[in-house]
Design a binder for these strands. Structure first.
Lengths: 251, 251
DNA sequence: CCTAAAAGCAATCATTTTCACTCATAAATG
DNA sequence: CATTTATGAGTGAAAATGATTGCTTTTAGG
């Protein structure tokens, strides 16, 4: 990869994520940490980012952590772990993937960029923009745009999916309850997820442990249909799941 | 191949791709890397490109971020004038509008926000995001995303439009030639524009004066089908247009 | 608060990639 | 035919990268 391209990628990643680790940038760009550090020094000289111990910080939004080191929310670290695990194990060359509009699935995109020939279909506008920015062949579903999540929903999107089959599909969830029901707050988004599952050879649900045992309004599937990828679970969480779940713990 | 032709090719390739490697150019032109390097040195001397280690970079806009591109685009004042004129005279309450992915049409969105009951259909991702942000009912066409303009194109988008009729449609153009042909560089974008015109009661083409007399590859319509909104024209520009044009000058 | 382990860093060096320069060949020009 | 011009290949130099090392900062556990 060309130096300039990599540095642009880094800049946009840092600005989008507000704060990130050297190791994440290294994974994303598939270069060594040495190179990332050199890039960060340059970018800091140009005033495009701010370097902090452990990584880099967006320079635009300084209303953040004043301390000189980075500190992620536990959630965000988990999301990256889960995304990385999913890409590493379940995305292959020339796959046709469906990726839904959630934040965890969004983290998968930069990692997919280094896998050749992948096509991403998504109903998330930001996910699509990120994928295109990473040079991935991208198809965005059409339809109404939800104001809060920027997810695309509606009949048009569902119809469009009728003519597609996915090698794999990846989606988030807002809850997995004791019966193994996968739920989300919005009916229309649930319909999209349901359709994606129906048209995919394999489905992976990305869920950090906080979603285990939760329940929401709209059911879009059952744990039996999918593989759940999550972070390390404690025994309390495991008790909240059905026994027959196909569960992968990212680490 | 002729040296000058090759250099033209290199220049346009670099500008289109924003950044590329010497090896890409070598493959594209079927010449040695030595020759490419010599060409790049010349082109850099002429200020047409910027050389970087491993390749060359467009000197014009370092705008990977299209939304940023929109803000710093050429003739911005003119575009705003045209957009304002278009909204003021041709957008009414409860209209169903098609707005294409160009920068001028993008400027219309904030102005439309104050008109009640309008629905916007667009193939521009940034246009859609802006419209949603302004609380406008927004439908985004689905399909492939073009990497350079972030326009959505392809069969899916065309099919989706089959079931729609627009009160009015607004689009940019890259050229209006002496015969009144409306042109744009990309075939697939042209197809979208063509379909929009076919499904709209009225079509308005937004064009600053620099496009008058220009010609591009893909024809998407003729001036007779549409109303052209432009800035004040001098007599030279007027000479480059057919007589029978329905022309409005914004000011 | 202190200390040990872990994580992150700058500095350095070896390797790989890219470059500038040179030279030889071939085509165009007078 | 001699001369200029464009090209491609080769070579040592320069730049970029990746890995290693020893030092500093941070974290975790008493």
């Amino acid at each position: 990869m060309l130096t300039q391209k990599r540095q642009k990628l880094i800049e946009s990643y840092v600005n989008q994520h507000e704060l990130c680790r050297v190791s994440d940038l290294s994974k994303m760009t598939a270069t060594s940490e040495s190179t990332i550090r050199r890039d960060l020094i340059q970018l800091e000289d140009e005033g495009l980012i701010k370097r902090v111990h452990g990584g880099a910080q967006s320079v635009k939004n300084f209303a953040h952590d004043v301390s000189q080191h980075i500190r992620f929310t536990l959630n965000h670290e988990d999301k990256i772990l889960i995304a990385r695990y999913a890409v590493k194990h379940y995305v292959h060359e020339n796959d046709y993937l469906f990726i839904d509009a959630g934040t965890t699935s969004y983290e998968m995109v930069p990692l997919i960029a280094s896998i050749a020939g992948v096509t991403i279909v998504t109903n998330g506008i930001e996910t699509a923009l990120s994928a295109v920015g990473h040079g991935i062949n991208t198809i965005l579903l059409g339809g109404k745009i939800k104001e809060d999540t920027h997810a695309i929903v509606g009949q048009a999107a569902l119809e469009q999916m009728q003519s597609m089959n996915f090698t794999a599909c990846f989606m988030g969830t807002n809850g997995i309850d004791r019966q193994g029901k996968l739920t989300t707050p919005d009916l229309e988004e649930a319909a999209i997820k349901k359709a994606a599952i129906a048209h995919a050879d394999r489905t992976y649900v990305l869920s950090d442990s906080s979603k285990i045992g939760e329940r929401n309004f709209a059911v879009f599937g059952n744990i039996k249909q999918v593989t759940v990828i999550t972070t390390k679970l404690n025994s309390q969480h495991q008790g909240l799941l059905p026994a027959e779940v196909d569960l992968k713990e990212a680490n």
